[in-house]
């Protein structure tokens, strides 16, 4: 029995170790290829580590490819989307969770069923519309469609529903107004889901590709992923340069995630287990 247990244990460790190596390998290769000299990543057998590391590809990205600008665009868009959507979604989520009003169930059902509609359906008319409003190739072009998310409203509603009504009643008896309750009672209590949603939204916005590609018609407005795909079109032969670009695109989200992973992972659980 004892023998069998330890046998199982080592088997498990071996498997997990292998799985971890396989999961990390693409990242490790990306990092090392990005500092290989030109042509270094196209050799047989492939090298895992560069013989003579070089920063030239990063330097090229910074000097010639305007990467700082793309980085700033990504930051501005992601931060704006996160903040505005958090505000709008939490207000709506609160209304759905704690108010009764005519049409509530119908509206909520409508929203829920709308979650089945793939976003791509809206893209063509949306583009024409934003264009009429003069918002194509501005940050608003990305921010506006990202301002709300039905999923976000849904998650916040689920969470706020678990806040006891008695707390709200008590506040109301104390003379607090609706908005005051929302701002000073509900938002602090809903902090876990808000932090989570903020992270989700930020990363989603950072990683988003298709819509920014469509709506940012000007080179100077590209976000990092669009710029990277753009680079891929022109420099597909330069494996090492592309890897350096991938590193720069991935690094910021990775840092944000590592700093806040507790909230992120806890949030996924909140979102699904409350189902």
């Amino acid at each position: 029995m004892k023998f069998k247990k330890s046998y199982q244990k080592y088997g498990l460790y071996l498997l997990m170790f292998l799985a971890a190596v396989l999961t990390l390998a693409p990242f490790v290769w990306m990092l090392s290829a990005s500092i290989m000299p030109e042509g270094g990543a196209n050799q047989f057998p492939p090298r895992l580590f560069p013989k003579t590391p070089t920063w030239e590809h990063y330097q090229r990205l910074f000097r010639q490819m305007n990467i700082v600008r793309y980085f700033l665009n990504s930051v501005i868009v992601a931060v704006s989307v996160t903040f505005i959507s958090l505000l709008f979604n939490s207000m709506a989520g609160y209304a759905f969770a704690k108010y009764r009003f005519p049409g509530k169930n119908k509206l909520f059902k409508l929203l829920l069923s709308a979650m089945v509609i793939p976003a791509q359906v809206t893209m063509l008319p949306l583009f024409l519309m934003l264009n009429r409003m003069g918002l194509v190739n501005t940050y608003w072009g990305i921010i506006i469609p990202g301002m709300t998310s039905i999923y976000g409203i849904f998650l916040i509603r689920q969470y706020i529903m678990s806040i006891p009504d008695s707390l709200i009643e008590a506040a109301r008896i104390d003379g607090a107004t609706d908005f005051y309750i929302y701002l000073r009672l509900i938002l602090p209590l809903a902090k876990p889901i808000l932090v989570t949603l903020a992270l989700f939204t930020f990363m989603g916005s950072w990683n988003d590709f298709l819509w920014p590609l469509i709506v940012m018609t000007g080179d100077s407005m590209y976000t990092l992923p669009v710029a990277l795909a753009n680079l891929m079109g022109e420099h597909a032969q330069d494996t090492e340069l592309m890897m350096a670009g991938a590193v720069i695109t991935i690094l910021p989200v990775l840092i944000v995630f590592l700093a806040m992973q507790k909230y992120y992972i806890r949030g996924i659980m909140l979102g699904s287990v409350k189902e």
């Binding site: 992923p225 891929m232 991938a246």
Partner: peptide, 15 residues
């Protein structure tokens, strides 16, 4: 195991 989830799809596809 979670790292790939948070990384940018475009970058991952490039890799």
């Amino acid at each position: 195991f979670f790292l790939p989830v948070v990384t940018t799809l475009v970058a991952v596809a490039v890799i």
